[in-house]
Structures are given as structure tokens and as C-alpha cells.
Design a protein around this nucleic acid. Sequence first.
DNA 1: CGGCGCGACCTTACTGTGTAAAGGGCGGCG
DNA 2: CGCCGCCCTTTACACAGTAAGGTCGCGCCG
Lengths: 192, 192
Amino acid sequence: MMIGMPAKRPPIPLSRERIIDAALEIADSQGLRRLTMRRLGDALQVEAMAIYHHLPGGKEALLDALAQHVTTVEVDPSGAGSWQELAAAWCRAGRAALLAHPGVLSLAMTKPPKGSAAATIREQTQQLGDAGLADPAGAVRALRAYVFGSVAVELQQTGWADPKTQPVEPDPDGDTAFEQGLSALIAGLAQA
Amino acid sequence: MMIGMPAKRPPIPLSRERIIDAALEIADSQGLRRLTMRRLGDALQVEAMAIYHHLPGGKEALLDALAQHVTTVEVDPSGAGSWQELAAAWCRAGRAALLAHPGVLSLAMTKPPKGSAAATIREQTQQLGDAGLADPAGAVRALRAYVFGSVAVELQQTGWADPKTQPVEPDPDGDTAFEQGLSALIAGLAQA
DNA sequence: CGGCGCGACCTTACTGTGTAAAGGGCGGCG
DNA sequence: CGCCGCCCTTTACACAGTAAGGTCGCGCCG
């Protein structure tokens, strides 16, 4: 009797997009360590091995894709009057993308940028150069460093990983701390 | 015949210190993903389970210890004439400690600081406050962010993880890039 | 000097994980 | 109607972390 046979075809047909979204949700809600092929399969109502069909390269490729996802942003340069504003806009966008998925921050910082992530960096460099900044490559490097570090420190202090530990005194919230350091950095870059 | 019996006692008696050192070496040379209890045991000429005796808490505790190890530094404030110099000294020390063990950077940035790592932060804040800086907490936060991010970006660009990928143009070496951004940040903090 | 207790290490065993390999079944094309 | 190819599942294996319990050797007490 074929009545109760477990549907061979999944409810909706699985795609790279869906896989990455589900992976992000698991990583964010339960931590990277608990992001597992089988668990990911469960979330997608599919056996773990089905994932390999849409993501050749297995888990390594998945992690690369996640890193890429949170380091790919776009900024419209037309809204900025000066390179300072433009730089700030890029930094805020970058920070927002990283903060949106705290679970994969360590991947974003560790994995070398490829594909769209590398393209993002090139675009940012291009725009800042066009906006009149001398040595845009150096500036982008410093700005990226600050954005990465800021988000890392912010997540540390909000005690995102590990429950228990955060006996640090009440900070100013992350936003204002970020803006303060950011304007300091940009001011410093101006007189370089 | 007791001649060939595998020595029950290891050549040298295993200690928390030795465990952490061996773990750092494995993580640096082969990557965090290959740092395994059994492999660590092999490196120490011991079965994996022996480690648990000296490191209650297992792998989680080990990773915490590693993170702590690369975020614990000391700086002698007597050599600095201004808070600017002092801040720079702290940043250089922090960067050196992180660069010394690239394999565990992601842990250092992810895990909330505990124990000696937290003490390091408190000490830095204290010293900068004593040196006349207003809002030392905010400054330390910004500086730490920049140091973390700088090292991350530097390791990305030297292609530390993943072989293949680093089609970025030849950068200025990490040292000078770091110093440039650092002086920019400190200059910006001065006029805040 | 003989036993003995205890701490450092080992053995075994179980659950989970990544992934290669091979097996289905459902849709469409001839 | 039969067959093929795509997606997904099944099965299998090497290796991960770690709980439980065994074993050896050292040092201490009598």
C-alpha cells in the first residue's frame, strides 16, 4: 500500500537561496556550532544529503556562502555630499549587514572575501576614490577593519555567545559607540 | 615480559600549560577545524581522555582558554609620554598577540572576554584614564575594535585561511597599513 | 617492608557529524 | 507505453566529543 509513503518530493523544491536562509536562521538562533547538515536538512524538510545537490562543495561551500552573504552590501553614492558621508554610509551598511546575522560573524571575518564580497570591496574603493579621497585602498582597509571590529566588540559586550558572562558596566548602546569611533576614524583619515 | 608494554605514564607529565601550547600550535599550523581532542592527545603523546583531567569542561573550556591566551597582554605605562603613545602601545601589543596565533583569531573576537582577558581591558581603561583621556571606556572600545578588525583584515589579505584566493592587488604590508589607520583613529579620538 | 589509597592516565562505548556511493521514484519526451 | 534524467533518499564509513569505569604506579602510613 502506497498510502502512507513518505512523500519523496519535499513540499517546496529546495534551492540554494532557501538553503542559505535556513542556515542563517539556525546559526543566528543556535550558534554556528549547532549548524549541522542534518539539522539544516530537517529545517528544510529534506534529508541532509539533498543539500549537496544544490551546493556542491558541501559544508565548506555553505560556510563560504554565508560569509559572502553578510559581507555583500550596496550603497548608492548619489546621496552623499562628501567622501566623508559616503564612507560613513558604507560603514553603516556594512555594520547593519553583519549585525543582522551575528551567528556568522566569525566566518565573515575569517574567510577571505570572494565573489560578491570582493566585488563589494572593489566598489567601495572605486566610489571613495571617485569622491576625491586620496589612497582609497588604505582608507577602505581601515574602515573595514573598524566595522568588523566594532561589530565583534558589540556582540561580545551584549554577551551574544555564552550566556552568563557579561559583568561589564552598562555601555552606551552600540549605535552611539559605533558612531563616535567612526567619526573619529573618518576625521583622522581626512588629515592623513 | 613487560618489556614492550606501552608506557602508562607519558614522557613528561602533562599540564594545562602544555595542553594550551600544543593546541595553539595545531590551530596555527592546521586550522581550528583540525584541532581535535584526539589529535591534541597525539601531539602530547597521550590519549584524548587524559586532557579532561587537566581541563575540566572539555573542548569548550579549551577554546575559551585559547581565546583568553591571545587577548591577554601587559603594557608598562611608564614609557609613554602622552595618552596617545600609551594607546598606540596597547594597540601594538594587542595586535602582536593576535598575530602570533592566527588560528584562534575567530575565537578571540567571538568569545566574550573572561578572566585575564577582561582584566586586560580593565587595566587598559584604567591606564588611559590616568593618562588624562576623557571617556577612556569609549576609547578602549574603539581601539579594541580597530585592533581586532585590523588583524582580521590583514589575515584575510595575506590569505591565511584557504589557499588559492587572494587576487587583491599588492597591499602595503600590514604593519604600515595598521600604523596609518591607528594614527588616524587616535588623532580622531583626540578631537572628540 | 608491605599494603593501600589516590590521582593520572587508558579503554570502551555511545551519540553525532560530514560525505561518498548507490538506490529509488516521479515527471516528461519519444 | 516505455525509458531517461533529475532530485531526493538510503546506506555506509571514518572520525568527532565525551560519559563511565578500569588500571597502573607512586607515596604514605603503619
